[in-house]
Nucleic acid binder design. Structure first.
Length: 331
DNA sequence: AATGACATCAACCGCCTCAAG
DNA sequence: TCTTGAGGCGGTTGATGTCAT
């Protein structure tokens, strides 16, 4: 017996979300909190599948989401975590709470894959002795590097799980980057207006000036979206400035910030299980894309260099310490 | 200016996990 | 123990934007 569809496919609307739909979803979640997604379309009157509502919330409307281009640090974190965890985007995203798994996945597929490929080609080009890069790096070397990596990760993990290093979060200069709610105003200059902010302002505006129901249906979304964009651009501060968000929406959106983001649902137990699973399975790391491949990843000398050079050796360490600690702090 | 190729990313699909009954 | 269904996840698609010719 096949499973019934999660939604009545006939009456379900597909495609891009409209501002009005966003408002309805956000206002409902603000009132009831995220969860029980099945009831969301019913209670909001949205002609959307519950999954679609959840996805829209977690990937787009949820507060604290950082949008726009990835920083080099984030790139390196993703590459490193991908090497450790494989294509487990949700797990990777748990270390970058400002980014959604979808965002990371997209970024990996559209940017980082190419970047790594290019680096790999560069490495091959540099091998002038006729040997392939995979031949030029002995398996022993790789195992040692892997062991070092695993050792570092394990150590960081055990430290993080011991919960006696609360300061590791604040000590890390990078931590603020990874924790949206502890970052009052990181000047991450971005011209991209976070839609979460827009929706937040939009909703705030909407709540302050509840339109009459009839007019609202047609005009509110459009005009308030405009307002929100205007606010965003005229507020003076960076449009991506989380501080601006909390300042302008603190009354209306305090409750938002008490939510556990669904993206952070990965408990540290499960994360550690993830890591342990990977770290203790000798050949599970670097196997293929989803199961990283030792062979395929061999020409990483340049990539590693890129990951580790110009002070990023510290990043490398920070990454593991910070991100694992980060996870513990979050959960 | 037109158009075709390529890039990006929001959203969908289908499978998996796990808790509740 | 088995069944059911909600929620979660990763892979993929398709609409849209951008660039090159």
């Amino acid at each position: 017996m096949g499973r019934p569809p999660c939604c009545d496919k006939i009456s379900v609307k597909k495609g891009p979300w409209t501002p009005e739909e966003d408002i309805r979803l956000v206002s409902y979640i603000q009132e009831h909190g995220p969860g029980n997604w099945r009831s969301v379309p019913i209670n909001t009157g949205l002609l959307r599948c519950s999954k679609s509502c959840r996805l829209r919330w977690t990937n787009y409307l949820r507060p604290g989401i950082k949008r726009g281009s990835f920083t080099e640090k984030e790139e390196k974190m993703i590459i490193h975590l991908q090497a450790l965890l494989g294509n487990r985007w949700a797990a990777i995203a748990s270390y970058l709470p400002q980014r959604t798994d979808n965002d990371i996945k997209n970024y990996w597929n559209t940017h980082l894959k190419k970047k790594l490929k290019k680096l790999q080609i560069d490495v091959d080009g540099q091998n002038q002795d006729g040997f392939s890069s995979s031949q030029s790096v002995s398996k022993g070397q790789w195992e040692r590097r892997l062991q070092t990596d695993i050792g570092m990760a394990k150590q960081a993990l055990s430290e993080a799980l011991s919960l006696d290093k609360p300061n590791s979060l604040t000590n890390s200069k990078d931590f603020s980057l990874s924790h949206p709610y502890l970052r009052p105003s990181q000047s991450q200059a971005s011209t991209y207006a976070s839609s979460a902010e827009n929706i937040s302002r939009l909703l705030e505006n909407w709540m302050k000036n509840p339109p009459n129901p009839a007019a609202h249906q047609i005009n509110s979304a459009e005009t308030m979206t405009q307002n929100s964009f205007n606010n965003t651009t005229t507020a003076g501060s960076s449009s991506s400035d989380e501080g601006a968000l909390s300042a302008t929406t603190s009354e209306g959106f305090d409750s938002f910030f008490s939510f556990n983001s669904s993206n952070s649902d990965v408990s540290h137990e499960s994360v550690s299980a993830d890591l342990n699973a990977n770290l203790t399975t000798e050949n599970s790391v670097f196997q293929d894309e989803s199961k990283p491949n030792l062979g395929a990843q061999v020409p990483l000398t340049l990539i590693e260099k890129w990951l580790l050079d110009d002070g990023s050796a510290q990043d490398h360490e920070d990454l593991i310490n910070m991100s694992l600690g980060d996870s513990v702090g979050l959960y």
